[in-house]
């Protein structure tokens, strides 16, 4: 486990297409996920993330294409496939009339956990997911965050090699989100994880690789770091400062190394200067030095770093041009 390169991949999806009537939800999707990877499935709502995940678990059938999980064909051996998967559905539906312990024991038995390991396994996942205090509680009376944890415990209870988590943090408050992310991160050592989300920080925080889906198509597939650099756009820096009215801070900054252009507001007591810089450049210390040299009062220097959001927006809204820059690496 953990070694991406050896053996067969955990998930192999080739030319997967899924239609609902005439609408295409997933369009000729191909990717692979190696064992031990933590992969984020990113895309706006309706991009086909949930559909793809449901197909991976055998809950939906593909219109065409093949899916293999740990070497089992989803269509031919759905039971074998599901044994390897711990699935947390979106919105985390649970039997609200059951107690947490009851539910987890029921799920463990259903997933084939042997009777003598049952107690141990249930206790272990409760421990893992922070459910030790609520074992006797009825699920319907738990808060949303606890429900999510129960769902996660359910996904984990049979020690699956692959975890598929559909929007695991949706509807949680910030504290719960952080706890859930920590939990997922802690799971990374022992499981292959595919999680879907439309929230960038989640992917940035947890995943090493991202698959970006838009309208059923895979528009990007790369490591989180590389994707971050993908759009080699311009670094924007904004500075706010007080100068004498006749002075032009723009020209002063424009000559700094790595700065392409610098434009300043014409008037106002506090003037804002916008700088566009070379990729990788960081002119902030230079700006400070220049301001001190001119005797300007510098109130703020803010660098807008290029983040996944930008990549995301560019890839999904801009259409073909940006996507063309990103080769689908996994599709060999």
């Amino acid at each position: 486990m953990g070694d991406v390169t050896t053996g067969q991949p955990m998930i192999r999806v080739s030319h997967l297409t899924r239609r609902y009537g005439r609408a295409v939800a997933v369009d000729d999707l191909s990717f692979e996920i190696g064992r031990g990877e933590i992969v984020g499935f990113l895309g706006p709502n309706g991009a086909g993330k949930t559909t793809t995940m449901r197909i991976l678990c055998g809950f939906l059938a593909a219109t065409s294409g093949d899916v293999e999980i740990a070497g089992h064909d989803v269509h031919r051996d759905p039971i074998g496939v599901r044994r390897h998967i711990g699935y947390l559905p979106e919105r985390c539906p649970l039997y609200s009339d059951m107690r947490v312990d009851e539910f987890l024991r029921f799920r463990a038995a259903l997933k084939g956990v042997p009777a003598r390991q049952m107690r141990e396994r249930v206790e272990a996942v409760k421990e893992q997911c922070g459910l030790t205090d609520v074992g006797r509680r009825i699920i319907g009376q738990l808060s949303k965050g606890y429900c999510q944890r129960v769902g996660l415990a359910d996904a984990l209870v049979h020690e699956p090699e692959l975890l598929i988590l559909d929007e695991p943090t949706i509807g949680l408050d910030p504290t719960q989100i952080r706890q859930t992310r920590d939990l997922i991160r802690s799971l990374a050592a022992r499981h292959t994880i595919l999680l879907s989300t439309h929230i960038l920080p989640e992917v940035e925080a947890v995943c090493r690789r991202v698959l970006i889906l838009d309208r059923g198509r895979l528009v990007a597939s790369d490591s989180t770091d590389r994707l971050r650099q993908l759009r080699r756009g311009i670094v924007r820096v904004t500075a706010e400062l007080k100068t004498a009215p006749h002075e032009d801070p723009g020209t002063a900054f424009a000559v700094l190394p790595g700065v392409r252009t610098a434009t300043a507001d014409k008037d106002g007591e506090w003037r804002r200067v916008r700088l566009e810089c070379e990729p990788g450049a960081d002119p902030r210390s230079d700006i400070f030095r220049v301001a001190v040299e001119h005797g300007w009062t510098l109130r703020e220097v803010r660098m807008e770093e290029n983040r996944l959001e930008d990549v995301f927006i560019a890839l999904t809204s801009g259409g073909g041009s940006s996507a063309g820059e990103t080769p689908e690496r996994s599709d060999s």
Binding site: H15, T63, S64, G65
Partner: peptide
């Protein structure tokens, strides 16, 4: 080979 497989898959589903 891929195209072949794809077509076979589609036929199978149908």
């Amino acid at each position: 080979e891929m195209r072949e497989m794809r077509r076979a898959g589609r036929r199978r589903r149908r």
